[in-house]
Amino acid sequence: MNIFRLAGDMTHLASVLVLLLKIHTIKSCAGISLKTQELYALVFATRYLDIFTDFISLYNTTMKLIFLGSSFSIVWYIRNHKIVSRSYDKSQDTFRHYFLIIPCLLLALLVNEKFTFKEVMWAFSIYLEAVAILPQLVLLQRTRNIDNLTGQYVFLLGAYRALYILNWIYRYFTETHYVHWITWVSGLVQTLLYADFFYYYFESWKNNKKLQLPA
């Protein structure tokens, strides 16, 4: 475990906490894409199939449980909680899941580390995570007033991905045989998707103005 990896995981954890804070305390999910949250739940469910079979470390297992538990509870809150679900604007969140799920599944069947159920599901989860933010980014563009917590949530998610890239660079130079093309290419694509958002996030921060993405 290196500092970039730990910082990346902590940033990821922070993004989840920010979202849970918004949902639990403010009882609102305004500006949050349920589609993206459902895709994340699917990402973790398919990636962590090894949770009970391969023990890596207590840290690893704990984090997996946190990401699984939080992603499914966020989806539950947005869909079913009496007050929270009222702030969900379905008409704005129109992205179709299967536009992302089907190509990722096909790609995972073609490009994987090993042609086994677990490995294909793992590759699928990596590809799906790379594009899962798209419904959220589309929703942000449609939202005239992006509240601070939503902006911070997306920023933290993007920062987590950028830190993972630094982690891979570090590991490549410090470990022997550390080469993972599937995660590297998908991770790079995923981080690039945030580039536009980052630009406007920093602009709004620099000029002390409310975040707004051009339509």
Binding site: R5, I56, T183
Partner: peptide
């Protein structure tokens, strides 16, 4: 041979 730790990232 040590078995490679598979997918140790989250």
């Amino acid at each position: 041979l040590l078995e490679e730790k598979h997918h140790d990232e989250l």
